[in-house]
Amino acid sequence: MKFINSNFWDRALRVILGSSLIAWAFYIEDLYKLIIFGIGFVILATGIIGWCPIYSLFGWNTRTNK
């Protein structure tokens, strides 16, 4: 697809990091719980979709076209 700008390893790392942050948000009892959950959700979503808005903003692309 044309809008994917992340390679496999970038996406896998984002899914792992996002899932970890969401899981961690369930174990803390602070006000930062929502912030950590939100950041984890955004990272997980960009990993699943494969499109990073910051990469698009700067014109970066880690995906190798074959």
Score class of each variant (00 low, 15 high):
2 K>L: 13
3 F>R: 15
3 F>T: 08
3 F>E: 01
4 I>K: 11
5 N>F: 01
5 N>W: 02
5 N>G: 05
6 S>H: 03
6 S>C: 10
8 F>V: 10
8 F>R: 15
9 W>Y: 14
9 W>T: 07
11 R>S: 10
11 R>A: 07
11 R>Y: 05
12 A>Q: 13
12 A>G: 12
13 L>P: 01
13 L>C: 11
14 R>A: 12
14 R>S: 13
15 V>I: 14
16 I>E: 02
16 I>G: 09
16 I>D: 03
17 L>S: 15
18 G>S: 04
18 G>D: 01
19 S>F: 03
19 S>D: 01
19 S>V: 06
20 S>K: 07
21 L>D: 03
22 I>H: 05
23 A>E: 00
23 A>C: 02
24 W>S: 12
24 W>A: 14
24 W>M: 11
26 F>D: 15
27 Y>E: 15
27 Y>R: 15
27 Y>V: 13
28 I>R: 04
29 E>M: 04
30 D>F: 08
30 D>H: 13
31 L>Q: 13
32 Y>W: 12
32 Y>I: 13
32 Y>G: 15
33 K>Q: 14
33 K>L: 08
34 L>P: 09
35 I>E: 08
35 I>C: 08
36 I>L: 13
36 I>K: 06
36 I>F: 05
36 I>R: 03
37 F>Y: 10
37 F>I: 14
38 G>T: 05
39 I>G: 05
39 I>F: 12
40 G>W: 01
41 F>S: 15
41 F>L: 14
42 V>A: 15
44 L>M: 07
44 L>F: 13
45 A>P: 00
45 A>Q: 12
46 T>F: 09
47 G>V: 02
47 G>P: 01
47 G>E: 00
48 I>H: 07
49 I>F: 02
50 G>K: 00
50 G>R: 00
53 P>W: 00
54 I>D: 11
54 I>K: 08
55 Y>I: 02
57 L>I: 05
58 F>A: 06
58 F>G: 04
58 F>Q: 05
59 G>I: 05
60 W>P: 00
60 W>M: 13
61 N>C: 06
61 N>A: 04
62 T>E: 06
63 R>G: 04
63 R>P: 06
64 T>E: 11
65 N>G: 05
65 N>E: 08
66 K>F: 09
66 K>V: 10
66 K>E: 15
66 K>I: 11
